[in-house]
Each structure stands twice: as structure tokens, then as C-alpha cells.
Design a protein around this nucleic acid. Sequence first.
DNA 1: ATGTTGACAGACAGACCTGTCTTGTTCAAG
DNA 2: CTTGAACAAGACAGGTCTGTCTGTCAACAT
Lengths: 205, 205
Amino acid sequence: MTFSLDDLAGPGPLPDQDARTRVLETAYRLFYRYGLRATGIDRIIAESGVAKMSFYRHFPSKQALIDAYLDLRHVRWMAWLEGRLAGLTSRDWLAALPDALDDWFGAPGFRGCAFINGHAEAGPDAPAMTVTHKRELAARIEQQCADAGLARPAEVAADLLLALEGAIVRAQMDGADVARGALHRLFARTLSAAGGERAWRSPER
Amino acid sequence: MTFSLDDLAGPGPLPDQDARTRVLETAYRLFYRYGLRATGIDRIIAESGVAKMSFYRHFPSKQALIDAYLDLRHVRWMAWLEGRLAGLTSRDWLAALPDALDDWFGAPGFRGCAFINGHAEAGPDAPAMTVTHKRELAARIEQQCADAGLARPAEVAADLLLALEGAIVRAQMDGADVARGALHRLFARTLSAAGGERAWRSPER
DNA sequence: ATGTTGACAGACAGACCTGTCTTGTTCAAG
DNA sequence: CTTGAACAAGACAGGTCTGTCTGTCAACAT
């Protein structure tokens, strides 16, 4: 199962889902848009049309809801990325990563990375998922580097991830346009340095 | 006037400064460490040993204090950077940027970029200084690229800034070590591609 | 000597926060 | 039909938030 950018943004009007789903989807939308601390339980309850006790039956605390939100965000984001790059060889997968990110940056409602933002807000005692998400993404990129036969796949993956994070922050603060070119150039340069003989070309799009 | 990393962290125990200074320095420390929303006015007032009315005489609202904090942070951070790289030629200045950042990442109490964090917390209506800071830093880097005679200084500066932002976020979330190598490699690769004939060597340190 | 200014201390209002509890309704399984 | 689970609506408690207000005191200028 894959996700489109719309799925990543979360469903719009909530149909006749059970209370837990409505709460989680509402939190998904509000937490990402307004931040964790700025979004109160009361608002989530009101907008999801759920009783307060129904909320506390499914989530023992706000922190538990935040954890569930980050888990869901991680699953959807990774699924979106895999779907966006499905069917590509590992070399093309890596080369197309900047294009996928561009799509995300330009999507309506884009407000940066939920895990970077959450970590920035919560500080050192941030939910573990903020760091876990980045580790899993790094592992995925490293795997593709190894599959592509690149030398020092761990180093290449670290370089690509760092560029990727920088692009997310730049796009969030200054707009998608300023991030696009720099991200593409850094990727091309890194892959070219790591790829050895064969040149990297931009697939599709 | 320049600032050391200690100055960047703010003064420790507050001497016999006037009320406004004590409030601002306390806010400087607490806002950076715990975030803007997590830091209440009451705590700032208590820790700065100031009456509430004295606070509101100098700052009409919490938002005004946040703005003043970001202004001060911008001035100190830029002054720290200039002091850290003072006396270098523009080529060496650019090549030494990753080393300066490393020093910052390893400093006690490092918790990422106050402007990235502030923007992540405040969302679209974030204080203008969060974006202004990045623009001024980009302009400074671009100027050094131009002085160094690099082709397409704006593009090179955008690439370096993106790598720099990525390194800040990586260091904040996963530790200074994971950011160090990748930042150095991306800088070396970018400067080498832009520098043309002459090779880039790491100055000093 | 007297008025002014700045600051400290703390009460207070009104809003919002998380989390608990009560009451009544719907619906489905036994 | 009864029983119990899930749910809606909302009062409530206890805390915290920003911002206002009243007093009191010391330094200082006139």
C-alpha cells in the first residue's frame, strides 16, 4: 500500500470512522500544521466530534496521542516515499530522491518535517520517534547506496541525508524554490563522486 | 567586538544589571534551552529577580521579548562567527566554516539553531527574524564566495547554506559526530567544484 | 523637604491547559 | 429484554498562562 501526497496530508472531512480514528486523524492534521504544544486537547476533541472520555479511553494522555501521531506520520511518509520511487533501480532511486522531495516541498500545507519540528519543540526529551524516523530513513538510503554498488555507502548516505535535511529546512523557511537547485546540485555532486565510472543522469520526470 | 562560544551561550549569574538586561539575558538562556512556548513569563520573571511590572514596562508583551531575544541571538551569533573566522582570506574563511560549526555543535548546551527552532515552533506567523537571520547569513557567505573569485557565487552560497542547515539539524538530533564528516565532505566537494583550478586545503586547526 | 522615578512584591482577572467524572443515549450481543 | 460497551455532551478540578493592578520602598532631583 502506498500513499499519495494527499494521503500524507491526511484525509479531509472525517467520515463515519470510529472515535479513535477521528481523533488520530484530527491530531495528525492539527499537530503538523500548528505544532504539538500549540494544539490543545480541547481543540482536537472539538474538531473530531468526540467526547472527552472517548478520547481518554483510547489515548491515556496527550503524550500518547503525540506518539501515535508520530508513528502514523512515519509510516505514511515512508510509504509515500517508497510509492513515489517505486520501480526504479537503486541508482535511479537515489538520483530521483531530489525530485520526490521537490514534490513534497511544493505540496499545499507543507510545513517542514514533522520530526524535525517535533524535536525542535520538545527538546532533549523529545519522543524517540523523532530520531528513529531519521535513522530508518538513513538506513534505507544506505541500503540503496550499497545496492547501487557505491563505495563507502554509509558515508554517501550520511552526505545525502544531511543535504536532504538541509533542503527540508530551507524549503520550510524560505520556500521550495531556494531549496530545489541546491539540493539537486549537492545530490549530483555526491553521487557523481561516489559513483565512479558511470555518469548519473536524471531519470523520468 | 566579538563573542566566544561562552558569550553565545549567555552570561551565567546576572550581576547588578538593570532590570531590562536581566530579563533579556534570562529569556535568552531559557528560550534557547526550553523553547519559546515552553518558557513562561512567570519563570523568566522569577529567575531574573524582577517585578512583573518592571518586565511589562520594558517589554509590552511576551512577543516583544521573543523578538528582542531573536535580535540579540542574531547579533551574537554573527559576531561569534566573524570572530571565529577573523583574519582568514575569503577562500580560507569558506574552507574553515565547517570547523567553526563543529566547535558550535560540540559546545555544552548546544540545542540547534534558535531560528530554525523558533520557526518550527511558531509556524507560518513566525517572527521575521527567523528568516532574516538566514538571509543575512546567506548574503555573508555569498559575499565571501564572490571575494574568493568563485564562479556563480550565489549558487555556491546556496549549496553551502543548505549543507550548513542540514548539519545543524543532524547535530541537534543525532549528535555532533554524525554531522561532522558529512558537512566537511559536502563543503569540500562544493568548493572544489566551484574553485576551478586550485585545490582547497583545510587551513589551521 | 518634597515630589518623581524606577523597581520589588504580590494579588488578581480571565483565559486556557490537561485530565476526571457524571449523565444520558445508542446499539448490539446474550 | 437485559446487560454492557462505546459514545456524546458537558461540568468540574487544579494548574498554568499572559497581562493588569495595587502597595511599598529607595534613590534622586528640585
